[in-house]
Amino acid sequence: MFSRGIELKKPEQIIRMRKAGLVVARILAELERHVAPGVTTGELDGLAREMLAQQGATSNFLNYGAEWGYPPYPGVACISVDEEIVHGIPGERKLVEGDIVSVDFGAILDGWHGDAARTFLVGEVDEACRQLSEHTRESMWAGIGAAHLGGRVGDISHAVEVSILSHGLDYGIVREYTGHGIGTAMHQPPDVPNFGKAGKGPKIVEGLVLAIEPMVTLGSEDAVTLEDDWTVVTNDGSWASHWENTMTVTKKGLWVLTELDGGEAELSARGLPFGPLAD
């Protein structure tokens, strides 16, 4: 069912999306265990491919873009290191002590999509970079927590921005790339910017599923795409963090489809209602 171009899901369809989300959550957790100095980004991508096959899922990243005339994306995971914001192509690059690595990963299961991102720390990381990742993660949860039935997508955007700015640091909030609706396709309306005014945008209703994904830098928000037509880096060379979860709002509360526990621990710690349809 579509409302003003936005795909609204029935409860049983969201439960199927939860299964895809669990595939994403499990594989990201396993990738984190393998992030270490000396490991290449290509090796991480290879592990993700193996696990997708083991779980009977397919990639929504592999060959993405070809239908619109872009070079087909060659990996199943976007692996972006240090100054790379998003869409980093996995390959021969070896991780080194002190790197931060943002892994954006998705899966399709029975026609339904899951999408999430995590920033992983490689060994001992500079305190400013550790805080960058933690503050970006916090802003994602602030956005999730701002969603409620009858509210607006702008409530999420505003909460993400306020959370980032609350730290009083010169962070750059990347505006060119946004969160999005998700369902039978990975990217659907509506866009979910990481800045904006509360009370604006499409209404949050039952059946709306969103991917909330702040990208934050230690410097400028300006981004540049490299010659490979995919890898997006900061214009000033500052390092970046990217966190993302797929979520929905039910009559009972919030349900994070790409967290192993559905988001229960994080939501409970914030005094927010946990509202799974199943689990």
Rank of each mutant, 00 (worst) to 15 (best):
I6A: 03
P11C: 11
P11R: 05
E12C: 11
R16T: 08
A25Y: 00
R26S: 12
I27S: 02
L31P: 00
E32I: 02
G38M: 10
T40R: 13
D45R: 01
L52I: 08
Q54W: 07
Q54E: 15
Q55T: 10
G56E: 09
A57T: 05
S59P: 02
F61D: 02
G65K: 01
C78Q: 15
S80G: 08
D82G: 10
E83L: 09
E83C: 06
I89V: 15
P90A: 14
E92Q: 14
E92K: 13
E92T: 13
V96F: 13
E97R: 14
G98Y: 03
D99Y: 01
V101C: 08
A107M: 10
G114E: 00
E124V: 14
E134R: 15
H135E: 10
A142Y: 02
I144K: 00
I144P: 00
I144Q: 00
L149K: 03
G151H: 03
V153E: 00
E161D: 10
E161T: 02
V162D: 13
L165A: 07
S166W: 09
G168T: 04
V192K: 00
G196C: 10
G196L: 08
K197H: 12
K203A: 15
I204A: 11
V205H: 01
L208K: 02
L210T: 03
I212G: 01
E213C: 07
V216M: 01
L218V: 10
G219Y: 03
S220E: 09
S220V: 08
L226F: 05
T231F: 12
S241A: 15
T246E: 12
K252G: 06
E259A: 13
E264M: 15
L267Y: 05
L272R: 06
G275Q: 05
G275C: 04
A278Y: 09
